[in-house]
Amino acid sequence: MPTGLMSIGTFSRASLLSIKALRAYHAAGILVPAQVDQATGYRAYLATQLTDAAVLRRLRAVDLPLSDVGEILRARDPDRTRKILTGHGELLQERMARIAQAVDEIQSSIEHPTSLTPVYVRDEPAMQTVEFRGQVREADFASFLDAAYAALYALLGRLGVPPDGPSGALYPPSGRRRGRSRRLRTHRNRGPATRRPRADGARGSAGRNGRRADPPRRL
């Protein structure tokens, strides 16, 4: 081993990163060895790389994505690092809030099993509805629903069409959810399916409302 270089085993013990992890970080271009033997493929590291290894290990300990870890190590910019960590901290807080809520719901269901809301399946015929669409965070659902229902009632009032059914909300399948946003559609029955007064959609900062023809469906 050339002077000043550490074998991957020695570097692993010094950095507290496994050899498997070091190979993965090398493949991802995040922590690249100072030298790779072309004949044997053996990796060697400089002692100065232990600083990056320590930063990497601490960032991964808080589940920071590898892409963000690599950006921090490449940029070496305190402002950029602070921005990335702030955004990740918000995600962790949201995750902790969801976990705490799930734990509370599980405990409540164990202590009071009859308090759970029953679920029913029903078939709905085709109907004309008005809807309000928007993309919101889970934490903002309540305020979004309040604004959506207010807008829908106002639209029905302008059309002179009384509601003919309960309000409701449609959520996307869980597999289609991405990032921190959720799509939500609320709607109200506008009357018999044969009655179709015109309802031009109006766009706003919170979402979009307009009319919709819903086919028969099972809910």
Rank of each mutant, 00 (worst) to 15 (best):
S15T: 06
P118W: 12
P215R: 07
V55L: 13
V36L: 01
I72M: 11
P125G: 10
R203Y: 09
E138A: 14
R211F: 08
E90D: 12
G201V: 06
I72D: 03
R95A: 12
Q35F: 10
D68C: 09
M96D: 14
D140W: 00
G87W: 05
Q38E: 13
R98S: 11
L152V: 09
S12T: 04
R196M: 11
A53Y: 03
Q107G: 15
A53I: 03
S18I: 03
L155E: 13
R137V: 02
E131M: 13
L73N: 08
E131K: 11
A142H: 10
H88F: 07
V136D: 01
A44E: 10
A193I: 12
L59M: 15
A97G: 07
R198Q: 14
R60V: 03
R23T: 01
T48E: 15
E124A: 10
Q107A: 15
D164V: 02
P215I: 00
K20W: 01
L219I: 15
A102C: 10
P113S: 01
V130G: 06
D140G: 00
M96E: 12
V36Y: 02
A206F: 07
D146A: 06
A150C: 03
D79H: 11
A97P: 05
R137W: 00
D68F: 03
A39D: 06
A34L: 01
G191F: 07
A61Y: 02
P166L: 00
G89A: 14
S67H: 12
V130M: 10
L50I: 05
G134A: 04
R98G: 08
T129C: 13
G204D: 05
D52V: 01
V103F: 01
V55S: 08
G191C: 09
R177M: 13
R133K: 08
V32L: 03
L66T: 02
Y42G: 00
F132G: 03
S143R: 14
Q135H: 12
Q38C: 00
S115R: 14
E105W: 04
G41M: 02
P2R: 13
L159G: 15
E124F: 11
T3I: 05
G87R: 14
A150S: 13
R188T: 04
L22R: 07
L59F: 08
P118A: 04
A100V: 10
R98L: 13
L46K: 06
E131Q: 15
A139H: 11
L219Y: 04
Q35D: 10
Y42D: 04
L92M: 13
Q101K: 14
A126W: 11
G179H: 09
A39Q: 05
H187R: 12
R190K: 09
